[in-house]
């Protein structure tokens, strides 16, 4: 049985998303490695659970964190989507949401937080500073992109991104979670990613 290419999100059309080719690449890889009937059904159930229950660990260092608070507040209400719970303990979280500039002093802390998280774990890089260093790229103390340190699943650009952009990015993460295999790692991320240098293409870049 083939994995369908659609990774459906309620009330969003497939075509409305960008970077669909990246997702299709993942699906192709899954099919090539052979997706069995039972496994696929189980996987689909598991992926449904995972993608609808994304508990965040927030590493908010600057402005983006305030926009994330707005996301949690009444107007944008991220509880609607299954992102309601944010755990402050890395052991219990699913996704590390890095918001704001990461400096040389914070970088080892962030690495440690990532290492402390239980599998499966994902990383979302929010804001220009996190993705590339942003306006502070020339500074002596700013990490130019956290993907030098940890693998990133989704990049949400902006300075800071609007709450709508947050949603778009988190939905892209959900889509990515929906085409995964329970046995065999999280998209083979650990194999693909080489620390320091090689950039893994995220959903929304």
């Amino acid at each position: 049985m083939e994995v369908k290419k659609m990774a459906p999100i309620r009330s969003m059309k497939y075509e409305e998303f960008k970077n669909n080719d990246y997702l299709e690449g993942l699906v192709r890889q899954l099919n090539d490695e052979g997706a069995g009937v039972i496994l696929t059904t189980v996987d689909r159930l598991i992926n449904w659970g995972r993608s609808n229950s994304v508990w965040g660990l927030l590493l908010g260092t600057s402005c983006c964190a305030i926009e994330f608070m707005a996301l949690g507040a009444a107007r944008y209400d991220m509880a609607r989507f299954g992102f309601e719970v944010t755990r402050n303990s890395p052991r219990q979280a699913d996704v590390l949401v890095v918001m704001g500039t990461i400096t040389y002093r914070t970088a080892p802390v962030m690495k440690r937080l990532y290492d402390q998280m239980a599998e499966p774990k994902y990383v979302v890089a929010v804001g220009g500073c996190t993705i590339s260093g942003g306006p502070f790229i020339k500074s002596y103390n700013v990490v130019n992109g956290i993907d030098q340190i940890i693998p990133v699943d989704v990049y949400i650009p902006g300075c800071p991104p609007r709450p709508e952009a947050f949603y778009y990015g988190l939905m892209q993460l959900q889509r990515k979670m929906k085409v995964e295999r329970f046995l065999g790692g999280v998209n083979g991320k650990d194999l693909q990613h080489e620390p320091n240098g090689k950039k893994e293409k995220g959903g929304d870049e």
């Binding site: 449904w48 659970g49 609808n52 229950s53 209400d77 309601e84 719970v85 699913d94």
Partner: peptide
Amino acid sequence: RIGPNRVGGKGGLLQVPADVLKILIK
């Protein structure tokens, strides 16, 4: 706020089962 309303039909009835499923395989 509205609270969970997207997972599993209207009213987000399947939100908590999704959480439970996720936490089981974590």
